[in-house]
Write a protein that binds this DNA or RNA. Structure first.
Lengths: 145, 145
DNA sequence: GACGTCGGTCGATATCGTCCAGCATGGCGG
DNA sequence: CCGCCATGCTGGACGATATCGACCGACGTC
C-alpha cells in the first residue's frame, strides 16, 4: 500500500511538516512535482489526516495534565460522553473495553480547576484520576515499517 | 504572553500546518513578514514544539489500539520503563501518580501482536489492558483562550 | 509487439518567502 | 509635556519555490 518513498516522506514530515516541497524532494530523492503528487495522493487516500502543530501546553498556562478513567452510572453513558466532549479541557478521550468505559486526558491550570471539572461529572459517573508526572514517550506515530 | 493574533495563528496552524505564510497572513489580517516573524518567535520561545503530520494508523496496518496500565514489580521500575521506551508499538506513555505507574498507548496489527508485546513485560510488571473501541475525542490541543 | 496507464523528469511561468527601508505606536526619561 | 527609543508593522524588490504542461520510460495487457 505504501512504498518505501512514501514512508520516508512521512517520516520526514513527522519531524517537520512545514518543509518545502523542494526540501522534501531532496530528502527522498525525487523531483518536487513528484513529491507534490505523492502528498496529494496520501491525503486523498486518508493516510495523511492532517498537518498540524504541536503546542507546548505549558506555554498556554496548562501546568497540569491528568488521565482520568470514567465509569458512567447505569443509563448515564451518553450524558457523560456528551459532557466530556463539550468540556474543552478534555483533549483526548477513548471509549474502551473493560470496567472503565472512557479513558480521557485532561489539561488544567491548577488542581482547583481539575476538581471543578471532575465535580461536574461526579454525580453521573465514577472517576479515577492519575496526575501525569512525566512523559517517557510523548506522542509519536506507530512505526512506519 | 500570547496575544490574540498568536492564538488565532496557532488555531489556524492546528488545522493546517502547511498553509503558506501568505495564506496565514490573510487569515489573521497581517502581512506575511509579520507572520513569519511571529512564527519564528513562537518557535524560539518553545510555544510551537514542532510542525507534524497526523497519520491514520489504519493506513499503516494498525487495526488495534490499546491503553495499558502498567505497574512494575518492586525494583523493576527502570527496567520496565526502558522496555516500554524501546518498544516502538508504544506510541505514548505517561508516568503517573497512583497505583498504576505508567499508562501507555499501544498500536498493534492484531491481538496476537498485543499478546506478544505484553508477554515480554509480564514477568516484570502487572498490566491491565483496555482495547480502544472508538475515540470520542481524538487528540486536540487544549483551549488557546 | 503495440498500446494504455502510471509515475516520473524538465523547463516555463506564476506564486511565495525574505530582506530591507521606512513608518506608526507606546513607554519612558528629561 | 515633549522628544526619544524600542518594537512591530507594511510595502516593494528580488531570489526561491510551487505548479503546470509537455514529454519520457517502465510495465502490464491484449
Amino acid at each position: 500500500m505504501l512504498d518505501d518513498i512514501d514512508r520516508r516522506l512521512l517520516a520526514v514530515l513527522v519531524e517537520d511538516a512545514r518543509l518545502s516541497l523542494k526540501e522534501l524532494a531532496a530528502r527522498v530523492g525525487l523531483s518536487s512535482p513528484s513529491v507534490s503528487e505523492r502528498l496529494r495522493r496520501l491525503e486523498e487516500r486518508g493516510v495523511v489526516r492532517a498537518y498540524t502543530v504541536d503546542i507546548a501546553p505549558q506555554a498556554l498556562g496548562y501546568q497540569l495534565q491528568a488521565i482520568v478513567r470514567i465509569r458512567p452510572m447505569p443509563g448515564r453513558l451518553h450524558v457523560v460522553q456528551k459532557l466530556i466532549e463539550e468540556t474543552e479541557a478534555f483533549c483526548e478521550c477513548d471509549k474502551v473495553t473493560g470496567d472503565d468505559c472512557f479513558i480521557a486526558r485532561l489539561f488544567v491550570r491548577s488542581i482547583e480547576e481539575l476538581d471543578r471539572i471532575l465535580d461536574r461529572i461526579a454525580d453521573k459517573a465514577e472517576t479515577s484520576t492519575a496526575i501525569v508526572k512525566s512523559q517517557p514517550i510523548r506522542r509519536r506515530p506507530p512505526p512506519l515499517a
